[in-house]
């Protein structure tokens, strides 16, 4: 906040400070002047260099949009806005169908998996954040928090491997049958023929829920920790129980921060690729039941990109364009939420 009151790159400070006595310079009319201008040039050069780096930071997102649009232009021109609602992905013409590409099943898959992941992951991560920020004794807090954060350091392909060889069999033999038994009468949990393999929209969503836990819980934890003690005491002094004091104090105070954290998690869930690709079953059809295999925007790109011909590649890049649009929307929203939190933190008592 407090920028040091120093010269900028275009306004270099005199190179001759108190460190250099005036008499020490043999030719006072030339020496300091030359050094000053040399320092000025270096300072300006350095300032320019870091400005260039800042420009890179600004240019990258802009370039991202331009390049991805440009690379998907073929598909955009060919299929128009119908691409977004198109339901079929036919990369080579057959007697029954011409070449056609549509994003709808993948958009649906992305939304479906990330919404379910949020439903599972958000309560868990907020609960964990409350425990770590408000309830845990000091000696427990730091170690457990860093272990939770370690979860974020596990590469997503390792989550995928674990999902494929540990979670999928577990879902197939334990969770899915139980859910079918109790909830099979609802369309969401309907059991179709061949939908009992364990690879499914539900399995991918559960993996996603696990993967967004550290993101949401660590950002929420920070938001909760930022609540002044006076808020907790205000609630306690009215006779609140510990839970009520947490709800009235930190949870209310940090709510925009927690909301921002959840949206960051949503962004991560929507874009996650490998773990989903390895557990969702990769079917281009709409998943009507959670036990059906499905496909998300990112998993479709990952699966098909390597062997795609130019037109299909362009269509896959257009899927990337849609995914980018969705995640830009979500991320800008999250950042604005988190920013409003800092503002409230500054003005509230």
């Amino acid at each position: 906040m407090a920028e040091p009151p120093v010269g900028t790159g275009t306004d270099p400070l005199p190179a001759t400070g108190p460190a250099e006595p005036a008499g020490a310079t043999p030719s006072p009319s030339q020496g300091p002047d030359r050094r000053r201008s040399f320092t000025g040039v270096v300072d300006r050069f350095f300032g320019g260099l870091s400005t260039l780096a800042a420009l890179v930071l600004i240019a990258l997102p802009a370039l991202l949009i331009v390049i991805i649009t440009q690379a998907s232009w073929r598909a955009i021109v060919r299929f128009g806005p119908g691409f977004v609602i198109g339901q079929f992905w036919v990369p080579s013409a057959s007697p029954t169908s011409p070449i056609t590409f549509g994003a709808a099943p993948f958009v649906a898959g992305t939304l479906e998996t990330s919404v379910i992941a949020m439903l599972i992951g958000v309560p868990l991560s907020i609960g964990a954040a409350i425990f770590l920020a408000e309830l845990a004794p000091d000696w427990l807090r730091a170690p457990v928090a860093s272990v939770v954060d370690l979860l974020a350091a596990v590469p997503s392909v390792v989550f995928g491997l674990w999902g494929l060889y540990v979670l999928v069999p577990y879902m197939r033999s334990n969770v899915d049958p139980a859910l079918v038994h109790y909830l099979g009468w609802t369309p969401l949990f309907a059991s179709h023929a061949g939908s009992q393999s364990g690879v499914s929209v539900l399995t991918a969503s559960i993996i996603l829920a696990i993967m967004i836990l550290p993101t949401i819980s660590s950002v929420s934890r920070e938001a909760l920790r930022a609540t002044p003690d006076s808020q907790r005491e205000a609630a306690l002094s009215l006779g609140a129980t510990r839970w009520e004091a947490t709800r009235l104090g930190p949870l209310a105070y940090a709510r925009s921060g927690i909301f921002g954290a959840a949206i960051l998690g949503l962004g991560r869930a929507m874009g996650e690729t490998m773990a989903v690709t390895m557990t969702i079953g990769n079917s281009d059809n709409f998943a009507t039941s959670l036990f059906d295999p499905g496909q998300t925007l990112s998993s479709k790109i990952a699966i098909n990109f390597g062997n795609a011909l130019p037109l299909e590649k362009s269509a896959l890049i257009e899927l990337g364009l849609i995914l980018m649009g969705l995640s830009l929307l979500v991320n800008v929203a999250a950042r604005l939420m988190l920013r409003s939190m800092t503002r409230m933190g500054g003005s509230a008592p």
Binding site: S230, A235, S237, L248, Y253, P349
Partner: peptide
Amino acid sequence: GMVFQRPNVFPT
């Protein structure tokens, strides 16, 4: 009941 040094209204 208790009143504290600094006003601690619930901001939300």
